[in-house]
Amino acid sequence: MIMDRFISNILKILRTYGVSLMLGVRTTLMVSLIGTVAGLILGLIVGGIRAVRLDFTASSAARVIKKVIDGFLNVYIALFRGTPMMVQALFIYYLLLDIIHWTYLQAAIVVISVNTGAYMAEIIRSGIQSVDIGQTEAARALGMSNFQTMMHVILPQALRNAFPAVGNEFIVNIKDSSVLMIISITELMFQAKSIAGSTFLFTETYFIEAMIYLILTTVASIALNMIERRFSRNSVSLPQSDTSPSSFALAVETRQEGNSDYVSR
């Protein structure tokens, strides 16, 4: 009896509010995808700068500048990892409202990007640390600069090593973007809340919402696993003229290592 009621209510909500739920999904996906990509770029820049060790030939002025930048970046990371994103959204939205007159959506995208950037910087840092020091030494010994070494040797490898963690940030963002409803962006959480408010079918609405989030995160993690597997396949492409069994076995082995599960924060 109760079950029947529950199901028929769910169907009713889906029929009446399906479109607004889909609009919510669209905004959620857009905000979390842009936030993850922008955050990754920010994280690469911040992580790359923090990982640079100046040469002994660097002037003392350069050393001071590097110290100041490092200090600034450390503060940025500490602030954004140490405060709730909901608070960041409110504070930053109102802080800049009078200056740049931005919309809720613009503010939300900026906040989630900068927030993700702080986490990504740490992810990239550990990715960089996982790259063997010999890679840096070889590049420097060839005469490549700090910057060239970072761009062409270290970061590509760091990014590959960190890929599971980077993908995980996307899944976290799909869920955590729900707190951005506090500044009235019409993502999934916001839509569900309005639907619940007008239908008074709280359990049913939030059940639907939870299921949608679950579907989004599951699909995203399957997609990320596929990308990751492709990543590791590319990295062990077989040599054209060598088809000896040993190198083939190696390629297969490395391919299987790519399987890692995505776990939400």
Partner: peptide, 11 residues
């Protein structure tokens, strides 16, 4: 010269 396109993990 026969390995120019080989991945360095396969040699």
């Amino acid at each position: 010269q026969d390995f120019v396109n080989a991945s360095v993990s396969n040699i």
